[in-house]
Simulated scan of single mutants.
Amino acid sequence: MDDDVSSFVQIRGSVPLFWEQPGLQVGSHHLRLNRGLEANAPAFDRHMMLLKEQYGKQVIVNLLGSRGGEEVLNRAFKKLLWASSHAEDTPMINFDYHQFAKGGKTEKLENLLRPQLKLHWEDFGIFTKGKNVSPRLQTGAFRMNCLDCLDRTNSVQSFVALEILLAQLESLGLNSKSITERFVESYKAMWTLNGHNLSRVFTGSRALEGKHKVGKLKDGARSVSRTIQSNFFDAVKQEAINLLLLGDFFSEEYADKGKMLMDHTALLVTPSILKAMSERQFEFTSFKKMKSEHCHLKIELF
């Protein structure tokens, strides 16, 4: 508003474990955890430390379901957090969205989820800065996820954003009912568009709606489109991502060995070199037993 600014940051990110969805995905989510919990712990710890450094206190809002592959991932996520040093200061709010608020039922979010989130967003506060407002800082953030961080995540994040919007408008001195109503309608449209755009990038189709008969018919068509996209075109997208991140892409076997032996900068080599280094690893590594709470193998690079 003129030179006055107000903001509230939310984070969305997939479950911070090493996992994938192999094979055909039709009707249900088949998941595979690539590493045990101990092997996941260092990456999880780095991820949480980075979030805390950048955004302050973290509250995890986990929207995963309690059936099939989602339940496996859900359980592993909880165990990883509980076993980490972050368990004491990082609450996890578990809300099975498909069970309690399927179809984006706002009244369910209002009655069941809002009371759990409200104390935290009041604790975080909002950011404000400008000539006509009192300076305030946001001291923490929600880290929200479902499986693919699309429809469910967007639904709950937009719900939180609309709740916070009223406090933001008040901080800017925009208290009249007519202005608030106009902001709310515009904000809803923005969040809907945000959901569609994210969904297009990730799945090639618009976000699911499911609130009325026509919406459910459209959702059926979009679900078919997503199934085709994820099963037949995602591999090419993943190769493109690997190419951008690593400079090349290579077979999963040598990629995993390379990641264990070298840091990510050393992986910027051609597949043939990576293969040779993996096959000759015993020429430049040694193994020693370490005494600790758990028995580990130490790899030393020369």
Results as ranks from 00 to 15, higher is better:
residue 140 G to I: 03
residue 133 V to R: 04
residue 180 T to E: 02
residue 194 N to Q: 08
residue 164 I to D: 03
residue 121 W to T: 01
residue 118 K to M: 10
residue 150 L to W: 00
residue 92 M to P: 01
residue 197 N to M: 13
residue 214 V to C: 08
residue 101 A to V: 10
residue 90 T to P: 05
residue 120 H to N: 06
residue 86 H to D: 06
residue 213 K to F: 15
residue 205 S to M: 06
residue 139 T to N: 14
residue 201 V to Q: 10
residue 190 M to A: 14
residue 157 Q to I: 10
residue 172 L to M: 04
residue 125 G to W: 04
residue 129 K to N: 13
residue 196 H to F: 12
residue 141 A to W: 00
residue 153 T to V: 10
residue 194 N to H: 11
residue 189 A to P: 00
residue 214 V to I: 10
residue 87 A to D: 12
residue 204 G to M: 03
residue 93 I to E: 04
residue 167 A to D: 13
residue 143 R to V: 11
residue 128 T to K: 07
residue 156 V to K: 01
residue 90 T to A: 10
residue 205 S to H: 12
residue 199 S to A: 13
residue 198 L to P: 00
residue 210 G to I: 00
residue 127 F to L: 11
residue 117 L to G: 02
residue 115 P to V: 04
residue 209 E to A: 11
residue 138 Q to Y: 06
residue 149 C to S: 13
residue 97 Y to G: 01
residue 188 K to T: 05
residue 202 F to M: 09
residue 189 A to L: 10
residue 86 H to L: 07
residue 174 L to P: 01
residue 132 N to P: 02
residue 101 A to Q: 06
residue 216 K to E: 10
residue 137 L to A: 12
residue 210 G to W: 00
residue 148 D to T: 08
residue 196 H to Q: 07
residue 205 S to N: 09
residue 183 F to N: 01
residue 136 R to G: 03
residue 115 P to S: 03
residue 98 H to D: 15
residue 97 Y to L: 12
residue 114 R to H: 14
residue 119 L to C: 09
residue 187 Y to G: 00
residue 199 S to W: 03
residue 141 A to L: 01
residue 184 V to H: 06
residue 163 E to V: 09
residue 123 D to C: 04
residue 129 K to P: 00
residue 187 Y to C: 08
residue 146 C to F: 02
residue 120 H to V: 00
residue 116 Q to F: 09
residue 120 H to K: 04
residue 125 G to M: 04
residue 87 A to P: 02
residue 164 I to L: 12
residue 191 W to K: 06
residue 104 G to T: 01
residue 138 Q to H: 06
residue 195 G to F: 07
residue 155 S to E: 13
residue 183 F to I: 04
residue 154 N to M: 07
residue 210 G to A: 00
residue 215 G to H: 11
residue 214 V to T: 09
residue 167 A to M: 12
residue 148 D to A: 15
residue 119 L to F: 07
residue 148 D to N: 06
residue 207 A to Q: 13
residue 199 S to R: 03
residue 110 E to I: 06
residue 136 R to W: 03
residue 116 Q to S: 13
residue 184 V to R: 07
residue 203 T to F: 14
residue 131 K to Q: 15
residue 99 Q to V: 12
residue 95 F to C: 06
residue 161 A to E: 12
residue 86 H to R: 08
residue 140 G to N: 04
residue 176 S to Y: 00
residue 197 N to E: 09
residue 163 E to F: 07
residue 105 K to D: 12
residue 88 E to N: 09
residue 210 G to T: 00
residue 211 K to D: 06
residue 112 L to Q: 10
residue 143 R to F: 15
residue 159 F to N: 06
residue 203 T to H: 08
residue 162 L to W: 00
residue 202 F to D: 06
residue 136 R to P: 04
residue 206 R to G: 13
residue 202 F to I: 15
residue 167 A to V: 07
residue 147 L to H: 11
residue 150 L to P: 00
residue 136 R to I: 04
residue 215 G to Y: 02
residue 217 L to F: 13
residue 109 L to A: 01
residue 158 S to I: 03
residue 144 M to V: 15
residue 162 L to H: 05
residue 119 L to Q: 11
residue 114 R to E: 15
residue 163 E to M: 14
residue 196 H to C: 13
residue 127 F to C: 09
residue 106 T to D: 05
residue 142 F to M: 03
residue 172 L to N: 05
residue 177 K to W: 03
